[in-house]
Design a protein around this nucleic acid. Structure first.
Lengths: 181, 181
DNA sequence: GTAGTCATGTAAGACGTTACATGATTCT
DNA sequence: AGAATCATGTAACGTCTTACATGACTAC
């Protein structure tokens, strides 16, 4: 389970409640999970049972009690071990690519429509990601960390920028192919 | 279920057996599923029940019977409808990015090791993808399709190339950050 | 009064992977 | 002798999402 370590990593930075984590995970592009309650609250229970996090219940006047989790020394050890473990290759999952593969079943204008709609979605998605990054210009605990965090942020937007460029080039090329027929 | 349509798309190209599909899906980068038996054989059963594919049993001398599936007119209709439907945004899932976010817990040489190992994995992965593309230089049924198929193939390798470049730039930058301290 | 935020949690189901099971042939 | 290929399928399990459930406060 990698969400286990994703949460552990966040708690190594600051203590958070399940509710906080849910927000972070559902709003950040690098955390590719939906950020649903079930997964987060169950994972926190698991982490607590493993002794990797400790829980502090904070009662509130008119609101439900907050359960704030902090990383423990053994949790930190587990996180370190994971950080040093063999990294996984990234996965680029594009259902659009699968659609494109069978685009021969579409006529020229249908394909154009598909590309246009996709392009618009990408551009909207890019704006959302750019706003997400602007909202939190995170300063790290060291120049090295600040650099890495900026590099991560830039990566999430460059994936979209590259995809937009790729589609735009495709539209140009398709026009040329049609003219040469 | 998108694997349903992924299989339907392949069958719109040529008839295939479950065994054939398993191979294609597990070896191709754009089909991001593992290509396990369970999923494929169950999906084919489903597609057959829906009347989207037809089955032809081919008995063989010393080998188990092959069940070859072909797309039906209603399957083709369903596929067309799917092709024209709203495309999903691509997902870039990188566990490495989550690791990098907490790399502050590693010292300089540990981070260097992580980057080096990751880079090596990426380079190995790139070679595998390049070989995959070289194995089948697919010619489409039209210049348009040939172009699209090449564009898809190039995309699967450019994702890796971009990632390699990104990591290499990071190594250079990290060296500079250390020297300026 | 309707929707959103804060805050927890559970139930049901969809989706995906690993591993098991069979059995003959062919390659090293 | 052992492993790989061809070819089907099932069982068990892990992961992930959607939807349900509660309840007070706040903003429009």
């Amino acid at each position: 389970m990698t969400i286990e370590y994703a949460i552990l990593g966040l708690l190594s930075w600051k203590p958070f409640s399940g509710y906080d984590l849910k927000k972070i995970i559902s709003e950040s592009a690098i955390y590719y999970w939906s950020g649903n309650n079930n997964q987060i609250y169950k994972t926190l229970l698991q982490l607590h049972q493993d002794g990797w996090v400790s829980q502090q219940v904070i009662n509130q006047q008119f609101l439900p009690a907050r359960k704030v989790y902090s990383i423990t020394p053994s949790g930190n050890e587990a996180l370190q071990k994971w950080l040093k473990s063999l990294p996984d290759l990234p996965e680029f999952r594009s259902v659009f690519l699968i659609k494109l593969e069978w685009a021969e079943l579409l006529n020229d204008s249908e394909l154009d429509d598909l590309l246009e709609v996709y392009l618009q979605e990408l551009k909207d998605g890019l704006v959302i990601r750019q706003e997400e990054n602007r909202r939190e210009i995170k300063t790290g605990r060291s120049p090295r960390e600040t650099y890495l965090w900026q590099k991560i942020a830039k990566k999430t937007i460059s994936v979209f920028e590259d995809e937009i460029e790729w589609v735009e080039q495709m539209r140009i090329d398709l026009k040329t192919i049609r003219e040469n027929q």
